[in-house]
Design a protein around this nucleic acid. Structure first.
Lengths: 211, 211
DNA sequence: AATGGACCTGATCGTTCGATAAGTTTCTAC
DNA sequence: GTAGAAACTTATCGAACGATCAGGTCCATT
């Protein structure tokens, strides 16, 4: 063919590129995903990425920004209508939402794990921009639970591991789980059952013993 | 200088290369760690890697083989002398050992996480060669506990997540933990305390309620 | 003292990477 | 209907990648 008809006024090209970038960054990690492969998946040419984004690093940040923005807005949509619900229930719902969003968007965990397991300036940015706010929300929540007397207080460092670990551990080994147990870890019924199990585990482990 | 005096009969050059490879593979992941950088860290020239190993992929496998071999032998050394200890205690010790080894060898988790979060032929090899045997050991252990009546039985898929997640979650977020809480997640006293906490969490969550 | 092989290096191969420069097409504004 | 900005492409850059090859150095053997 001589030349593809250049589609104009397509303002959603940026969207298409972001989707392709999320797919490949999460599958092959930053270094493994070439800009040419991303462009091909998006159905555009490679230099167009540099037209819409300042560079590969900038494309990666925009991709992560977009992903976390979707997570926050889904969280907002689910919890903004809640009124008169006790903190324990909210905590349960938050973990469940985290697990369910992870099941629907496995790219979040892939990128988080890949990037948190290497030393790079991208990690600094990711933690400060996206992880810290989530962490501080969770800490505040559990602090409130502890002072209200429902849960036994846990030192912040341990709490950090329990909160992030309880949610994150669910899909850390997702592909291996499928292979070893034959269960599809993204099946809705499994997601719901395991979310309940993780919540119970967390609550039971921190619930004060009855005297 | 004209040329470095070529040291001969150095049979531990292979060892030096493996150490450098483990360091960089875990820090920058497979694609991010160039063979030239590995060679430089090892203090040799880049073509020497191809002399000792068939290629980059082969070097990676040899590195992972070596790492898991160290894990297995440390496990062996710790548990081979145990006699007359009940299964619950052994389970506690296993998780504790896993956590402690992870603290001393953070590269294990880095490589496991990086590689399990991408689609590659290396993942297939890693799971079948190293992860599956560990998994089947753990399943057998908890099966024995369940049939002996101490723990409530859990479906294998959930058990898989709980076993791997309880151990793995500890260091999934290690660098962020340091940054956010100010606690060094590799300090011995923290490792010991958190291992106990994880074990308690796992045991309490699966211990049968007294009627 | 000569030889063969193990160990290691310098030079360089072809490929692929991210980035850019220059040119083309399409829509909008007047 | 023509000018100009916006959107997109083709062609190509220099750098870095993994791999190979032709040698060079040292030691063990005889």
């Amino acid at each position: 063919m001589p030349a593809l008809a250049p589609r104009q006024v397509s303002v959603d090209t940026r969207r298409t590129i972001l989707d392709a970038a999320l797919e490949l960054f999460s599958e092959r990690s930053f270094d493994g995903a070439s800009t040419r492969a991303i462009a091909e998946l998006a159905g555009v040419t490679q230099p167009l990425l540099n037209y819409h984004f300042a560079g590969k690093e900038e494309l990666w940040r925009a991709t992560v920004d977009d992903l976390f923005e979707r997570f926050r807005s889904s969280m907002q949509a689910r919890f903004s209508g809640l009124r008169g619900v006790d903190d324990v229930t909210i905590a349960k719902l938050m973990v469940r939402h985290f697990v369910e969003f992870s099941a629907a968007n496995p790219q979040l965990h892939r990128i988080l794990m890949q990037e948190s397991k290497r030393a790079s300036s991208r990690l600094d940015w990711l933690v400060e921009t996206h992880v810290r706010p989530l962490y501080e929300n969770a800490i505040a929540m559990f602090d409130r639970l502890a002072t209200s007397g429902d849960l036994a207080p846990i030192p912040p460092a341990h709490l950090y591991y329990l909160v992030t670990g309880a949610g994150a551990s669910v899909f850390v080994m997702a592909p291996e789980c499928q292979r070893l147990t034959g269960v599809d870890p993204f099946a809705p019924e499994f997601v719901a059952a395991h979310a309940d199990l993780v919540v119970d585990l967390l609550i039971r482990a921190t619930t004060k013993e009855s005297p």
